[in-house]
């Protein structure tokens, strides 16, 4: 047997990606105070050796701000995506396996939440909860589960018609047991993809409500805040204010995407043949 194969190198790469993401998250926390230090003697400096990402109009080090911002965005993105995915999973399963009334209720709820513009509902929820980290997380979690829930419901409805689920019911397995044991393994790849796709959405929506003034305060610089603030200075030729945070946001989203894809492939190698 071959000692080294594609699967093993993929696991190594996966561990590397996850530790990179974790490192950024932790480093951001460590740079938290430094990101807030203002020093007008060094304002508007382009990238140099002491400040690799330059400094902004208040003399804050952009490297520290970018890391803190990424850390904030990753935490918000992960938390909201995880909560939304769990929500979508439970509601989708509930709708499809608990009869007509439950289905009607959940579908109605999905239509209701989807019918209201995201941003409006987000602003309302975030404002009602006093803005800040909590407001943003709850707001995004409560608005982003709908399309995934619809997908899961459809998948469960399809699985319910399959022969092996019908056989399991005749073998005396209850609805809940079948859902947990027979359906969940089919739904996990879908959920992972959903989680990964939700992540950039969550970050972008966090940025937009922060921009509108209903999200994080400016002492908690998430990438969205940094980008929207740098808009004004971009026209004056201070390209480094937007380039580095923006590029690193793309890198983080890409890392997330690749991680999700690899987990999916490691868990379900047969999907390639389908």
């Amino acid at each position: 047997m071959k000692l080294w194969n594609g699967r093993k190198s993929m696991v190594c790469l996966l561990v590397l990606f996850i530790s990179l993401l974790a490192a950024v998250t932790i480093a951001g926390q460590l740079y938290k105070t430094e990101a807030l230090v203002t020093d007008f003697s060094r304002k508007n400096m382009p990238p140099c050796f002491s400040h690799p990402f330059g400094t902004d109009w208040m003399g804050r080090d952009m490297f520290a701000r970018t890391l803190t911002g990424l850390s904030m965005s990753i935490r918000i993105g992960l938390l909201t995506a995880a909560v939304s995915t769990t929500f979508a999973f439970l509601l989708g399963l509930f709708a499809a396996s608990m009869g007509k009334a439950a289905d009607g209720l959940v579908v109605g709820l999905i239509d209701l939440v989807m019918g209201i513009p995201h941003i409006l509902l987000l602003v309302l929820i975030s404002f009602a909860l006093g803005k800040g980290f909590k407001g943003v997380v709850v707001g995004i979690s409560l608005t982003h589960w709908t399309s995934l829930a619809r997908l899961i419901r459809g998948e469960v409805l399809q699985l319910k018609e399959s022969q092996y689920i019908k056989i399991a019911r005749k073998l005396g397995h209850g609805g809940f047991e079948t859902a947990l044991k027979h359906m969940t393994p089919h739904l996990i790849p879908q959920l992972l993809v959903g989680l990964v796709l939700l992540f950039p959405h969550a970050i972008l929506h966090e940025a937009s409500i922060t921009f509108l003034g209903f999200g994080l305060s400016s002492e908690q610089p998430a990438i969205g805040v940094i980008l929207s603030e740098s808009m004004k200075y971009l026209a004056m030729g201070k390209w480094w204010l937007a380039l580095f945070p923006g590029a690193f946001l793309v890198v983080v989203v890409l890392l997330f995407h690749l991680t999700g894809e690899m987990v999916g492939r490691l868990m379900d190698p047969g999907a390639l043949h389908q």
Partner: peptide, 19 residues
């Protein structure tokens, strides 16, 4: 548990591919 059990013609459709 249903006392009348049926064995289907196509075994590949009768078992959950993920178990």
């Amino acid at each position: 548990y249903c006392p009348v059990q049926m064995i289907w013609q196509h075994p590949e459709n009768s078992v959950n591919p993920r178990l």
